[in-house]
Structure formats: structure tokens, C-alpha cells
């Protein structure tokens, strides 16, 4: 359910940008999410639309792109994807989601915790990079003239 807080963060930052730059209306907003965030696009879209109502973002086309996760070990050079990483996540450390009662890995909320929660599947080192597919960014906005 962190989709609502992420949508709030995106909407508030864009509205602040609009106030600063005198933007009266957005035509398109393109967001890139890291695969590690495991974003539920439908929930995010609903939240974005609801929070945009009555603002310069209302009616803007929302494009959501997911960036695949790629991990690379600095110790042995091994590279791996999110499916492989997912299998290694401990079930002892979690965040409890309300109201579903599901337990999610903290990585889903805070991808920068990767080095605490994962190790290289080949050599066991924590000295690895999450080369891509980590965070959220606003990759492009189109404003109405």
C-alpha cells in the first residue's frame, strides 16, 4: 500500500514545481520505477488520479515505466536479476501491510537497504551495486502551452 504515499510524493513535488514555474496544466507525466519497488500500477494510478483532482495535474496522461533490476558484484563480477534476489530475501525481516496482513520485505519500501538484506548469490559479498531498477524518478513531464 505504499503506492498512495509514493503518489502523494509525486503529486506534491509536481504541484510545487508548477507553482514555482507558473505551470497551469500538465499534459503528460512519465515516471520510472525500479523493479525492486514492486509497484502495483493500478493502485498507483488510482491514487495519482484521485490526488490530482482539481489541480494542474488533473487529466494529465500518466506513463509508468518499470526499470528492470540488475545487481553486479564488485567482488566476483557476478550479475543477477530481481527474481534471483527475491529468492534470497529473509522471511525474518519484514514490514506488515495493513489491512491485508501480508508481510513484505523492507526492500520493497526502501530499496537502498539492499546491501543489508542481500548478498551476492555467487560469492556472498555485500559489496555489490544495484546498477538499475532501484528508485522512483520523474523522467519527463509535458506541460500545456
Amino acid at each position: 500500500m505504499h503506492e498512495w504515499s509514493l503518489a502523494e510524493a509525486v503529486v506534491n513535488s509536481l504541484l510545487s514545481f508548477a507553482r514555482k514555474e507558473g505551470v497551469s496544466s500538465f499534459r503528460e507525466v512519465e515516471l520510472t520505477f525500479g523493479e525492486v519497488m514492486e509497484l502495483n500500477r493500478d493502485i498507483f494510478r488510482t491514487a495519482f488520479e484521485e490526488l490530482s483532482r482539481g489541480t494542474p495535474l488533473e487529466g494529465a496522461r500518466l506513463v509508468i515505466r518499470e526499470e528492470p533490476a540488475l545487481f553486479r558484484c564488485n567482488s566476483c563480477g557476478h550479475t543477477w536479476d530481481f527474481d534471483e534476489a527475491h529468492k534470497m530475501l529473509s522471511h525474518e525481516l519484514g514490514i506488515l501491510e495493513e489491512p491485508s496482513g501480508d508481510r513484505e520485505s523492507p526492500l520493497h519500501f526502501l530499496p537502498d537497504l539492499a546491501r543489508a538484506l542481500l548478498k551476492c548469490p555467487s560469492c556472498g559479498s555485500r559489496d555489490f551495486e544495484l546498477v538499475s531498477g532501484k528508485n522512483l524518478r520523474v523522467s519527463r513531464v509535458v506541460i500545456s502551452e
Binding site: 505504499h2 504515499s5 510524493a9 525474518e92 525481516l93 514490514i95 523492507p106 519500501f109 526502501l110 530499496p111 537502498d112 537497504l113 546491501r115 543489508a116 538484506l117 555485500r126 559489496d127 551495486e129 532501484k134 528508485n135
Partner: peptide, 24 residues
């Protein structure tokens, strides 16, 4: 969230982590 696990971090990760923690 990390129990007793160590958290080594590099360039920019810490800033991004604390921003996200404070934002959420």
C-alpha cells in the same frame, strides 16, 4: 527493518535511503 545486519552503502545511497525513509 534490518535486524543486526550490517549496511554498507556507497555514493548517494545513504542520501536516497534517508530521503525515502523520511518521505514515507
Amino acid at each position: 527493518m534490518i535486524g543486526e545486519e550490517p549496511l554498507p552503502s556507497a555514493g548517494g545511497e545513504k542520501m536516497s535511503l534517508i530521503s525515502t525513509l523520511a518521505a514515507l
